[in-house]
């Protein structure tokens, strides 16, 4: 099963179209529910960092959820069962990539489901859907 992959962050221009695309899945504008983030690597002069879920096979976020609101996704990563979630932020803190974001309006995590919608809107070949490569 394929997953979202950052294939070349050096091509990233910081346009954030991926972030807007992610949010648009919910039929709204802005960035409130986006599960991917592009930020500068300490100022625009240093280029960009694309922060995205890497679909861990043994996800640390899932292990710390006290209410089992995160279930393993086939192919890696997790699926959020929003109804179970109590908004404790532990998953967000456990992710070493800082790839879990917070929807403050809903008080729930925004977690990538590896649907690939954002890839369609990356004009600069930074993102792709790919099979995970094993070392």
């Amino acid at each position: 099963m394929s997953r979202l992959t950052v294939v070349d962050a050096d091509r990233c221009v910081g346009c954030q179209l991926c972030m807007f695309a992610c949010n648009r899945r919910f039929g709204e504008g802005g960035l409130a529910k986006s599960a991917i983030r592009v930020r500068s690597a300490g100022g625009f002069e240093r280029g960009f960092v694309v922060v995205a879920c890497r679909a861990c096979l043994d996800p640390p976020c899932m292990k710390v959820c006290p209410v089992d609101a995160l279930e393993p996704r086939k192919g890696g990563g997790v699926i959020l069962k929003a109804r179970k979630c109590i908004g404790c932020h532990r998953c967000e803190e456990a992710c070493p990539m800082h790839a879990i974001f917070w929807d403050n309006e809903a008080n729930k995590p925004d977690i990538c489901v590896h649907c690939g919608y954002c890839v369609n809107y990356c004009p600069h070949e930074v993102l792709a859907m790919k099979e995970a490569e094993q070392l």
């Binding site: 179209l17 949010n23 648009r24 919910f26 039929g27 709204e28 504008g29 802005g30 960035l31 409130a32 529910k33 929807d103 403050n104 309006e105 809107y121 004009p123």
Partner: peptide
Amino acid sequence: GDHGFEVSDRKLYRETYDDVYKRAV
């Protein structure tokens, strides 16, 4: 800030978006 913005018609919004995006790229 972290507010999202509602639209009047979700489907039409996404279609119109794609139209603008295609023209842009």
